[in-house]
């Protein structure tokens, strides 16, 4: 039975408790940031920020809308990143059978920069990031250490607004559907983001692109000739490393 998150952007106040708690639990170092004219900081996901609250503001028909999107790995049921990496470094990315968590292992360091780019490109939500120093590729690990010990993921544990939930997929899905019905009055454009495909179900307060470019799955761009050739050459790569 897969585990799942429900992230309700209509309840998020962007306090960033999740963003900070995630760093604290994973003992990730602070990154150097600058104020560039937005509250969103760090500006993007990076090897040391698995969770990032994205801010986007709009003036729509004279009404200000400010949306918050706590971005993280969706733990896809059929994870394209895993399938892509598997061709290069078996075991670099694995899926935990009990929880469905998609986990990046130490073997990800054996993915070359180009291969990582392909993994990242495969992700419909643009999540994986690579530490250019160590070569490790990282992202949200569902707090698998906590979950295996019957504790909530740190972001969910921290959220005081009821914006984050965690549990069995079926329960979470039902909760999300129910909540969607409740908020439709206030948020007529609300929807669930790819709820059939992922273990992290977002309730989006408005049109997806108003919250984040990758709020819903983006179909990967058609492969370039170079990528196509690289793909054909894969078994060879694999063999050479073994």
């Amino acid at each position: 039975m897969p585990k799942a998150f429900f992230i309700d952007t209509t309840r998020c106040t962007a306090c960033r408790g999740c963003q900070v708690a995630c760093k604290e639990w994973h003992n990730l170092p602070a990154v150097q940031t600058r104020q560039t004219g937005t509250h969103q900081n760090p500006p993007d996901l990076n090897p040391f920020n698995y969770k990032l609250v994205r801010f986007s503001e709009h003036l729509i028909d004279g009404v200000i809308r400010w949306y918050f999107f706590p971005d993280q790995c969706r733990h896809c049921f059929q994870p394209p990143c895993l399938f892509t990496a598997e061709d290069y470094v078996p075991g670099a990315i694995v899926q935990d059978e009990d929880t469905g968590a998609v986990l990046y292992t130490d073997l990800t360091r054996h993915l070359s920069a180009e291969e990582f780019e392909e993994v990242r490109h495969a992700c419909p939500y643009d999540i994986p990031r690579r530490d250019s120093g160590t070569g490790l590729v990282s992202k949200c690990d569902m707090c698998i250490d906590r979950v295996k010990n019957d504790k909530l993921p740190m972001c969910v544990n921290t959220c005081a607004m009821g914006a984050m939930h965690f549990g069995e997929y079926d329960d979470i899905r039902a909760l999300a559907e129910k909540r969607l019905e409740v908020v439709r009055g206030e948020f007529p454009n609300a929807s669930l983001a790819n709820p059939d495909d992922v273990a992290v179900v977002y309730l989006l307060a408005d049109e997806p692109e108003r919250l984040h470019q990758h709020a819903v799955a983006q179909a990967p761009a058609p492969m370039t000739r170079k990528q196509l050739l690289a793909r054909l050459a894969r078994p060879l790569n694999k063999a050479s490393r073994a």
């Binding site: 960033r16 963003q19 900070v20 760093k23 604290e24 170092p29 602070a30 990154v31 150097q32 940031t33 600058r34 104020q35 004219g37 509250h39 900081n41 760090p42």
Partner: peptide
């Protein structure tokens, strides 16, 4: 507290 300074680093 570095992780907080990371989120709001400078006067705006």
């Amino acid at each position: 507290t570095p992780v907080l300074l990371e989120a709001e680093p400078q006067q705006y």
